[in-house]
């Protein structure tokens, strides 16, 4: 249940984060302004960050604990095991989750701590005096390697959420026989929409639809 509740919070974050990021298509002014707004929250932003951190840690901690219990519940494994209904996503939640975790760490290092690319630290401010998130994203994603890793990680995240987003309804008991198939379907659509939304950014950068704009 803790896993479900912490998961819901993360899903909400992921939705919000996507909405923020998609502003890149509206041009540097929008997204840089958005980033500035976030920063203007000041201490509140740190509260939110801390809350998310605790949430992530709890989500992972309890999942791993459950996974260990689950492993213990079957000490001798089957010589042959077929599944009938369980999806690939549902059977590999821990794996997809842990890879996504690795991705999140990289992601934070890249864009929040800006330790992966020396250029990010010295980016000039945009014409409105905001930190130039737009340029940073474009620079970051113009590396096919980075973008590839992003898209792969996002794929796994979507896989994780294609199960997780409907699964939490079940875990919290907000489900019944009629709802289950609809929620499962809705969850899958939701997850892949997220995937499309998120990966549209690196793809757009790579394809040259979103390019650096020189400051006038």
């Amino acid at each position: 249940m803790i896993v479900a509740v912490t998961g819901v919070i993360l899903i909400l974050f992921v939705i919000g984060h996507l909405l923020g990021n998609l502003q890149i298509f509206l041009g540097p002014a929008w997204i840089n302004g958005y980033a500035e707004h976030l920063r203007d929250l000041g201490p509140l932003l740190w509260v939110i960050r801390a809350f998310l951190l605790v949430d992530v840690v709890a989500h992972i901690y309890y999942t791993v604990r459950l996974a260990i219990e689950n492993r213990r519940a079957r000490p001798t494994s089957y010589r042959r095991k077929d599944t009938v209904k369980a999806t690939f996503a549902s059977r590999h939640m821990v794996m997809s989750g842990l890879i996504v975790l690795a991705f999140i760490i990289f992601h934070l290092l890249q864009f929040s701590f800006r330790t992966t690319d020396p250029r990010f630290a010295i980016l000039p401010a945009d014409p409105l005096g905001h930190y130039d998130v737009y340029t940073m994203m474009v620079l970051g994603f113009s590396s096919p390697l980075v973008s590839g890793f992003y898209i792969l990680a996002l794929f796994l995240l979507a896989l994780h959420l294609s199960h997780g987003s409907s699964s939490f309804f079940q875990s919290l008991g907000l489900n019944n026989k009629n709802l289950t198939p609809r929620l499962a379907q809705g969850g899958r659509i939701f997850a892949w929409l997220l995937f499309v939304g998120y990966s549209s950014i690196p793809v757009a950068v790579l394809l040259g639809w979103v390019t650096l704009r020189t400051h006038s």
Binding site: E69, N70, A73, T83, S171
Partner: peptide, 10 residues
């Protein structure tokens, strides 16, 4: 000592 449900519906 049973395991936990991860909603695989198996």
């Amino acid at each position: 000592g049973f395991g936990n449900c991860t909603n695989t519906y198996e």
